[in-house]
Structure formats: C-alpha cells, structure tokens
C-alpha cells in the first residue's frame, strides 16, 4: 500500500493553477484515497444501472445486501468459520516456515536439500493439489487448514531463508570479533536482523492463506464466506454474492494493511524517516 504510506511533503507555494493542483495532490493523500474509491464505486454503480449483465448488481444494491447480511448475523458467522482454518493454517505455516527457513539459511546442507523443493512449490500452482487433501482428510477443518498451509508455507519458508542469507555480514563479523558464540550469533544478531524480512514473509503468507482458504471453501466444502458466495449464487441473489466476495477482499486488504503498518512502524523504526 505504498500509495497510502507515503509521507506528506511540504512544497513551496505554487504560482500557476497547474502547480497548485499538483501541490494539492501531494499534500492530500487521503483525498486521493477517497477519490479513487469513489471513482471505482461510481463506475460500478453505472455499470450496474446499465446493466452490463443480468448478474451485475449496482454498488448500492451490493452495499444494502452487505448491510443486511451484517445485520442478520450471517456475515459474522461466516467470517467466524472462514477465519478458523485461516488463522490455524497461517499460525502453523509461520512456526514451521520460519523454523525451516532459518535452518536453511544457517546450514548449507539443509539449503541444498530443501531450498529447491520450496522454490518449486512456490512457483508451482499448488491449487492443483487441493483436491487431494479431501481424499485423506475429508471435508472438515483439517482439510481446509491443510489447504491454507499448502499455499502459505512455501512463501514463508523462502522469505525466512532469504532473510537469514541477507543478514548484514558486518554485524555477524562484529559479533565474531567480540568472540560471540554461534548461539549468540544466531539469537542476538541473525534473528533480530532478519526479523523485518521474516515478518514481511509472514505478511505474504497471510495473503497466500486468504487465497488458500477461499479455494478450500469453494472447492472442498462450502462453509463460511465460500458458502455465502456459493449459496447466494445458486439462488441468484447476486447482490448478496458480490457483497460476500467484496467482504473477503476487504478483510484481506485491511489485514494486510495492518500488518504492513506494523512492519514499517514497529519492525523497522530506522526506516520510518526515509
């Protein structure tokens, strides 16, 4: 969300209208956020009014459907169900992925053995394997959690591994020059220095987890938001269906923005000024 996080700059007073406009644009980031939201929602509303398709509700209808689903509690219940495999899967991927990534970053043998596997898994369309999960683990929480792990784990592993490999070598030398043990080197230098990138990997893992959980809910068994989407589609309640889709995209966007904020403001205090 680089657009939102850029600093507001103070610029000298403008002479022409054109410059004044540019000045305004630079000072008012929030204005542009609102404007770009408005532009898309207006375009959506117009496209819905035309309508471009019988299955394309207007923005206002969708908003009303969203309000209705929030009011009758079905949205809250759906999110409760969807977030379970997501949180569980991301938590397991985070623990396992960061541990594996750090081991791969520290040991050349483990790097040789594991890095190619995760490079392939990250580049490959893991979605193809989601149907397999149902064979072994059925259609319950375990299957959906596994689907989240399959998509989230590779990106977390590879980022953790790169984070450890890109630790500032001068800090490692510094630790050695003061006769730090290997253990001290790992816990006092390598992990703290890699932490911002580890966290960034976690954020990418969360994004992949959202894709995984939606895939699982649409493919394995309709529950949660996936069920809302499938059900309202089957009864041609398109406004409700769109609202469900928009709600999960919004939920993922807000989650990722919060993580990004945390990363830049807490994990990298030294980058805050730049």
């Amino acid at each position: 969300m680089s657009v939102m996080s850029q600093d507001v700059k103070v610029v000298a007073p403008a002479a022409t209208t054109r410059q004044a406009l540019r000045l305004f644009a630079e000072r008012r980031r929030s204005f542009w956020v609102v404007l770009s939201l408005l532009v898309l929602f207006t375009a959506w509303e117009i496209a819905g009014r035309v309508p471009i398709s019988f299955a394309f509700p207007t923005f206002l209808d969708t908003l009303a459907a969203l309000a209705e689903m929030v009011a009758d509690g079905s949205m809250v219940r759906a999110f409760f169900l969807t977030l379970q495999p997501l949180v569980l899967g991301v938590a397991i991927s985070a623990l396992l992925g960061i541990a594996l990534g750090i081991v791969m970053g520290l040991s050349d043998r483990m790097e040789w053995l594991l890095a190619p596997v995760f490079i392939v898994l990250q580049a490959a369309p893991m979605a193809a394997l989601v149907p397999l999960v149902t064979f072994v683990y059925g259609i319950g929480l375990v299957a959906k959690t596994l689907a989240v792990i399959m998509l989230a784990l590779p990106v977390i592993v590879l980022n953790s591994y790169k984070a450890v490999r890109h630790v500032n070598p001068s800090l490692v030398d510094m630790c050695r020059s003061f006769q730090g043990t290997r253990r001290q080197q790992i816990f006092k230098i390598i992990i703290p220095d890699a932490a911002p990138v580890l966290f960034a990997g976690l954020r990418l893992g969360v994004a992949a987890g959202f894709i995984g959980v939606m895939l699982a809910e649409l493919l394995i068994t309709p529950t949660g938001i996936g069920d809302l989407i499938t059900y309202h589609r089957s009864v041609a309640n398109y406004a409700h269906m769109y609202a469900a889709v928009a709600s999960i995209i919004a939920a993922s966007t807000v989650t990722l923005a919060v993580l990004q904020w945390f990363e830049t403001n807490v994990m990298r205090p030294e980058k805050r000024r730049s």
Partner: peptide, 18 residues
C-alpha cells in the same frame, strides 16, 4: 493517485474468491 490504491489492493487480494 487514482489507480494506485486499487492496484495495491488487488495485487495481494484473494482473487480465488472472485
């Protein structure tokens, strides 16, 4: 300014839901 927000949202959105 107008497109940046949406591009940044969709680049990491769960498009499988779409």
């Amino acid at each position: 300014n107008i497109f940046g927000l949406w591009v940044n949202i969709f680049v990491s959105a769960p498009l499988s839901a779409l």
